[in-house]
Design a protein around this nucleic acid. Structure first.
Lengths: 386, 386
DNA sequence: TTAATCTCGCAACTCCATTTGCAACTTGCC
DNA sequence: GGCAAGTTGCAAATGGAGTTGCGAGATTAA
């Protein structure tokens, strides 16, 4: 008898299955023997196997596993013992079929490789695990076919709710989901319908802080690199910038159109660097843009923050590892994920749907790091054309 | 009749469901009327609904949807029309139950927020979509409870295969999966068992290139920041470094133990910077470590690459956006994901399992960017203590 | 002792799509 | 006309767990 379960040698397998339910160890001999017979029928054990081995009915096994309080503790113990020894795991496919609930939440993002999302996915998964849910992660990659597929996949798998964290979703697709009474949660763009939750982001707060921070550092020529113009959240950020600038009497006209990508940031800096009377600070609509700006600045020997201050938006995890670490407006991804998850859970557990949308609020805040500094004096401005 | 499907007003809903199958539009009147009756029974449409509406049997609907070639094209057309108009999506939960295959692959990673993984997840998902699979993404977050849970979740959901891209998985857990005849794919550490695939990474190739690249730039004192010592892949990288150094007659003794995190990289640079006869180049066991090294170098006014050359490993997407862009050894994540996915597909489609493990090979290669340069002359070495 | 209360087993039915054997039907072809 | 081949319908069964009504047995309370 081996002291450990090892996988390398074929001789040691099957040496028994270590129960995951309660951590009990299985007695090898009986197991491989019995399973041989059971195995002939089809595959492995089902609820009936457990029932016959524990000498109870399938109903009792079902009650035990689902922790119905009326089962006799003695019996329950017997059942759990068998479950544990055999390493029985209830088939959640069958469970879903009968219960009509899959215990799966869909999560639609635009691209998993966009650094904004992994943190969200992680938090979402953590919450899912805690609540015995799974997540069905889907990305649209900015492609309408893929969006359609995303929705189809969600519906086919009968998810219990969907968090739509991407933008530019077509209404007809959302209608598909809503028609099937699937709870939905959106960021900013949630329609006013039953079973819909909407997370409203307060962009203004963080952006105002950023603008005032720059102003305090004596920057007056502050550029803004926007996101794609069709994106509602990008527009909101831009508006927040304009309002914040006007609030303190600065000119908000220095706006360069970006696209929320690193490449967009690079192009933006090219444009900004070419301006006469070059801005001394750049506020970016997201961190990826800021990363592009910083990269291109490096290539042009524009030192950050000495020659140019840069502020991002989102506070993706990598912002703090940039060189220099990026000052940015934090829109907490874990918080966003938690709100989204809780919104779906609330909706799932609600007895009867509300009349309309449920709203949630989320704030944004400036995080100071090292990519901002006092505005350079006129005289020391590099590449000055005047 | 509205020209568009809009979601805002309740009056326009339900205005019909835009078919996703073929993109046909539905005729509103009949729909809401009929669905009202159908809705009384339970929820929505099932295969019987389709059958009765198309005036065929459920068997025919099933054959049609599953594209059995013997169905009459006329009939098929009629069925598809109804399917399309009603926006019917077959219930894959029920399908899975009857077929015994869930069309879900598990994907176990250590942390989704580790930048190494998103690219893999994205590629994996793309392949899954192409093959009508879903992915069940699970993270272990270096916690044994979570590992156990990961395995349990995979088994309960009856996944058709699992890609285990994390390390330090306990054998007993793997046994659980293997016992249930679930195809598995590993990186480096796959046991020699049926239905197991193993992706062997050729670390040596890329690391040798990196070492020789540094040597060619006249670096002789090259440090290595290793990964966690218990990690097999980290050990392999370290061995590859040692061998590559010895090959060309350099001393491979300058090894600092890291842990594959940014913080580990920071600590490593602190240690390296404190050495007398400081190394002029650092090769890191992964990119996160290199990012930490670069960050700390920045804080200490050590300029990269002028005073110190840095090379990473993995080539995560962000490596190219570092300042300066990071020279690193590429271990292509999309390729890895593709090999893993294909391995699972091969295993699923195989009629009878092979006797033992299937091996796949993957190479690594140096990618030159801007974090390496000629070794500084003795005279200009900063912080020189001699 | 009798009645009331529990707990459990039994067996049938549900969820939904798929599969299958058998019967009925339509074709085509000799 | 008649036989063969090809389609389709029908009805029953499958998959695994959950649910339920009913009745048997055991326990407790009155």
């Amino acid at each position: 008898m081996h002291a450990e379960c090892t996988l390398g040698s074929s001789a040691s397998f099957p040496s028994g299955v270590c129960g995951i339910y309660a951590g009990h160890r299985f007695v090898g001999e009986t197991y491989s023997h019995e399973c041989y017979h059971a195995g002939l029928r089809s595959q492995l054990m089902d609820i009936r196997e457990i029932a016959s081995r524990a000498k109870v009915s399938t109903a009792t096994v079902s009650r035990t596993i689902n922790r119905v309080p009326t089962v006799d503790p003695q019996l329950a113990k017997r059942v759990w013992k068998v479950v544990d020894e055999l390493g029985y795991y209830p088939n959640s496919v069958a469970r879903s079929l009968v219960s009509g609930r899959s215990r799966v939440f869909g999560l639609i993002v635009s691209e998993i490789t966009n650094p904004f999302f992994p943190e969200i996915v992680q938090t979402f998964e953590n919450l899912a695990v805690q609540n015995n849910y799974e997540i069905l992660l889907t990305s649209t990659v900015y492609d309408s076919k893929r969006m359609e597929l995303s929705v189809r996949r969600m519906i086919e798998r009968r998810v219990d709710g969907v968090a739509i964290l991407t933008f530019g979703m077509e209404d007809s697709l959302i209608e598909h989901l809503h028609f099937r009474k699937v709870p939905l949660v959106f960021v900013d763009v949630g329609p006013n319908l039953p079973r819909v939750s909407n997370i409203c982001i307060n962009y203004k707060n963080g952006i105002r802080q950023a603008v005032q921070h720059l102003a305090a550092l004596r920057h007056t020529r502050i550029a803004f690199v926007s996101g794609p113009p069709h994106l509602k959240s990008a527009l909101a950020r831009r508006r927040a910038f304009e309002e914040s600038m006007e609030e303190i009497g600065l000119d908000p006209a220095l706006i360069v159109v970006g696209d929320h990508t690193v490449e967009g940031g690079i192009r933006a800096l090219v444009e900004i660097a070419g301006k006469r009377n070059r801005p001394t600070a750049v506020l970016c609509s997201n961190d990826m843009t800021a990363i592009g700006v910083m990269g291109e600045a490096y290539q042009r020997d524009l030192e950050i923050p000495r020659h140019l201050s840069v502020v991002g938006f989102d506070d993706i995890r990598l912002a703090q590892f940039m060189i220099p670490p990026l000052t940015t407006v934090q829109m907490s991804q874990p918080e966003l994920a938690k709100i989204a998850f809780d919104a779906l859970m609330n909706e799932v557990e609600r007895d009867e749907p509300l009349r309309g949308r449920t709203d949630y609020q989320m704030n944004t805040n400036l995080v100071l790091r090292q990519s901002t500094a006092l505005a350079p004096q006129r005289a020391t401005t590099r590449h000055s054309k005047s």
